[in-house]
Amino acid sequence: MKLLNSNGDIKILPRAVHKIASFSINGKHIQEYDSNYSYSAVQKYLKRIISNPEKLNFLDAVIRYNYWYKPVLLSVNHDNMNKSYNNETLIKLYKEALKISPNNEKYLLGLASMYRLSKNLNLATGIWQKVLQINPNNYQALLSLAVYTQFNKNQKAFKRSLTRLNEIDGQQTKQVEGWLRYLEELKTIRLTTNLNRVYDDNTSKHFIVILGASLTAAGKMKLKLKKRLRAGLKLAKRMPNTRILVSGGKLPREPDFEAKVMKQWLINHGIKSKRIFEETYSRDTVQNTVNSTDILNENGAKTVTVISNASHMKRSYTLFKTARLITNGKYLLDQYVVFESKDEFKALENNSRDIPKIINDLLRVAGFWLLPGIQR
């Protein structure tokens, strides 16, 4: 990929990696936002690129950068997730790409995802419908329409969509029906708040999975991550033969990998290094899930306890169950929640606002791209 630098010269950018890994440009980890990736700069640079393929390669790089750059790590939205703050820019960038290639399904699906993330489901729906006009067999567009607009509101239409999905790809649809059941279970799921109720399996095939959380710009852990680690430490000391998997990569502006900081904390508190597995590639909960599931399967896990905060667990536990289903994992799975604050008790209640976010992440775990070619 190519991008113009501040002098107007074209420089080479690495192709978007397919492995789920921490984000860097030219091998350098992102710290401060590069104004060359702003929309105003992009408009100027596009005028200097002659061929349409080069323009699209350039836009792919810029979209990737703007999606992953998180300007304010300490700010969160109502889902308790780090904000991107770049949604408006990304929407404009996708529109630029569609000016060049109006019927490109990749860019249409990306724009639909950005509208959905911006809570504009009507515009997203219109784009999915347009994709299906271009290609009636586009599985992702049809599935997106079904789960976001029909699942809870129009069962007849939803069943018709499932029938059509089954005609397109019966094997894939069987998996979809499996993880859709997990969405139904969200209404009655009971989160574990007592450490005495998690699996009592003091063997090397029991994995305690501690999910990471963003560090401060100085590389320090915040309270939510410390509480997760303290809970994991209690379990690890109670069952000294178990393994521990710490999961968390490095976001833009983080000076270190979350998993490495977590591992060192556990070592400092008496856990032997050889008991600890590190997952350092992930940048969000979906990637925590996908990468951790691979490690669990590769190491023959039999029982797994996932540890996270109450506000995070319904989503993360559902994703782990889905990943186990998708990969034919053979282990039993349970969870334990910790509380960062009294407000997190609200997370134990059913909250319909979480459902679109969970659907979004379930699709990604199942292999559907949020931004095709840029973000699974």
Rank of each mutant, 00 (worst) to 15 (best):
K2W: 04
L3Q: 07
S6W: 01
G8C: 05
R15P: 02
V17T: 13
K28T: 15
H29R: 07
I30F: 02
Q31K: 14
Y33Q: 08
S35E: 12
Y37F: 14
Y39L: 08
Y45D: 15
E54H: 10
K55P: 00
A61R: 14
A61E: 06
I63C: 02
R64S: 05
W68D: 03
W68N: 15
K70E: 03
P71W: 11
L74S: 14
N77P: 04
N86I: 04
L90N: 09
K106Y: 10
Y107K: 02
L111M: 15
L111P: 00
A112G: 01
A112H: 10
M114E: 11
L121C: 05
L123I: 14
G126D: 10
G126A: 14
W128A: 03
V131N: 06
V131S: 03
P136M: 14
N137D: 12
N138M: 08
Y139I: 05
A141S: 05
A157Q: 12
F158Q: 08
F158E: 07
K174I: 14
Q175G: 08
G178L: 15
G178M: 07
Y182I: 12
L186Q: 09
L186P: 02
L195N: 05
N202T: 12
I208M: 00
A213M: 02
A218R: 08
G219D: 05
K226L: 03
A236C: 09
R243H: 01
S247V: 02
F257D: 01
K263C: 09
N268H: 10
K272Q: 08
I276K: 01
I276D: 09
T280V: 05
D284C: 04
D284Q: 06
S292D: 00
A301H: 04
K302H: 13
V304D: 08
N309S: 14
S316R: 02
S316W: 02
T322D: 07
A323W: 00
R324T: 05
R324I: 01
L325Y: 10
T327W: 03
K330A: 05
K330T: 11
F339L: 15
N351S: 12
S352P: 02
I355C: 09
K357E: 11
N360C: 14
D361C: 06
D361R: 06
L362T: 11
L363S: 11
L363H: 05
A366S: 12
G367P: 03
W369Q: 15
W369E: 10
L370F: 13
